[in-house]
Design a protein around this nucleic acid. Sequence first.
DNA 1: TACGGTAGTCAACGTGGTTGTCGAAACCGT
DNA 2: ACGGTTTCGACAACCACGTTGACTACCGTA
Lengths: 158, 158
Amino acid sequence: MATTDPARPGFALPLLLLAGFRALVDDLHAELARQGHPDLRPVHGFVLQAVGPDGTTASELGQRLGVSKQAAGKTVDRLVALGYLERVDDPTDARRKLVRTTEKGVDGLRRSAVLLDALRQRWAATLGEERVAAMEDDLRAVTPPNFFRLDVPGWFGG
Amino acid sequence: MATTDPARPGFALPLLLLAGFRALVDDLHAELARQGHPDLRPVHGFVLQAVGPDGTTASELGQRLGVSKQAAGKTVDRLVALGYLERVDDPTDARRKLVRTTEKGVDGLRRSAVLLDALRQRWAATLGEERVAAMEDDLRAVTPPNFFRLDVPGWFGG
DNA sequence: TACGGTAGTCAACGTGGTTGTCGAAACCGT
DNA sequence: ACGGTTTCGACAACCACGTTGACTACCGTA
């Protein structure tokens, strides 16, 4: 997919979608790094978002993200080490260890929301709000809902 | 980014772009697996495409893909083991080892082109050709050209 | 000819994923 | 109340993909 050969129009579309995603996420994380979150990676955003305000367990997190509980557990370990998540014992079940977002994690999520809104506005300023909305509508129409919970193995590594 | 909370519109756009990319690439590789290429991964498509018809070296490949020459070399190793690439000595320079696409690699690329065209047509059947074209135009307008050659560290692993 | 730059490789390591195994705790039917 | 099954978290081994740093072999040139 290195070129967008006009003779092969199929190659262009996935590349452009990936380019769009990366453009947004790269800008987001560059600004996040400036605002005190240099260690936050794209993957971490998905995880923090999936933990949710009430906390969850590593197993449940794995199910939500479509990865094994072990993989989820290791990612939680890293985010705990970085100070974005914390583990607490579940008083009602000695097996479970609740994973909760720390204040730092909430700050990262809050800043991400603000920055992504701003990035969307930047696109709207270039393309027009109705074109961005149309793109979102069209993508919703051709993609399965909750796509990232599908466990398609081998996505990146594994 | 686990939810598309209407109160946070910024979260939706990157998620939808990624969902679109994944929808296309997942379908592509599912069909590629059925057509005799079960070991081909999304990453491999980029590499095969970047090698090009005339072959190249690991260092140059790394530059094109925005990764180190060592990383490029290791990925070439795996694709050689799978039979998609081959290394030949450069007769004009004993340091260089040319990386070339094998017949199997060309077959994978050819099938990918056909399948991606079909996938694009499927989108056009749902959305209308002009909407797909508009999406491509809009994405071209907001993404930097040759985005994947930018070396942004830490994208997935590293 | 001696030297600087380049190509490829090896080693060590980090991140994100997999499967398999295991003990402790909880749940449930008898 | 107890014994079997399930579930959770942890550990180990492994793979894919990326990074730096160091090293050898070779090329081109002053």
